[in-house]
Amino acid sequence: MAGKHPIHIHPVRPLYRIAATGLGASMWLFLMIRAKKDGPALLGWKHPWDH
């Protein structure tokens, strides 16, 4: 059994790789938009009820 590993990992299908990349990018876009809008209130720099 020299040089032969018993576990074989199959390559990822392109559809799953593209879908994962797209969902990850949309998640980070959503987080950055929310941070831009709600960031100061979250960090305590501005109160949400002050307009």
Rank of each mutant, 00 (worst) to 15 (best):
H8D: 13
L31H: 05
K46Y: 03
H51E: 03
L43Q: 02
H10C: 13
G44E: 00
A20G: 11
H5F: 15
P11Y: 06
I9K: 12
P11R: 05
A2Q: 15
H47R: 05
L42A: 10
I18W: 11
H5P: 01
G22W: 07
L43S: 05
A19H: 08
M27G: 13
P11C: 08
K37W: 04
K46L: 01
I33M: 09
L15D: 15
H5Q: 15
A35N: 03
L31M: 11
A25D: 03
I18F: 10
A41L: 04
I18T: 11
L29C: 10
M27V: 13
L42C: 05
K36R: 11
K4V: 14
H47N: 04
P6D: 08
K4Y: 15
P11M: 05
G22Y: 06
F30Y: 12
H10G: 09
K37H: 05
H51Q: 05
G39D: 02
W49H: 06
K46R: 09
I33N: 03
W28P: 01
P40H: 02
D38L: 06
Y16P: 00
M32V: 10
L42H: 04
P6F: 11
G24L: 01
W28F: 09
K36T: 09
R17T: 11
K37Y: 05
G22H: 05
D38I: 02
W28E: 06
V12L: 14
Y16H: 15
R34V: 10
I33P: 00
P48K: 01
L43Y: 03
A2F: 14
H51W: 02
L43F: 04
D50H: 02
L29Q: 07
L43P: 00
P48M: 02
L31Y: 06
A20S: 12
H10Y: 14
M27Q: 12
I9L: 13
L29P: 00
A20H: 09
K46M: 04
F30I: 09
A25T: 06
P14N: 09
H10K: 14
L42S: 07
W49Q: 03
K46C: 00
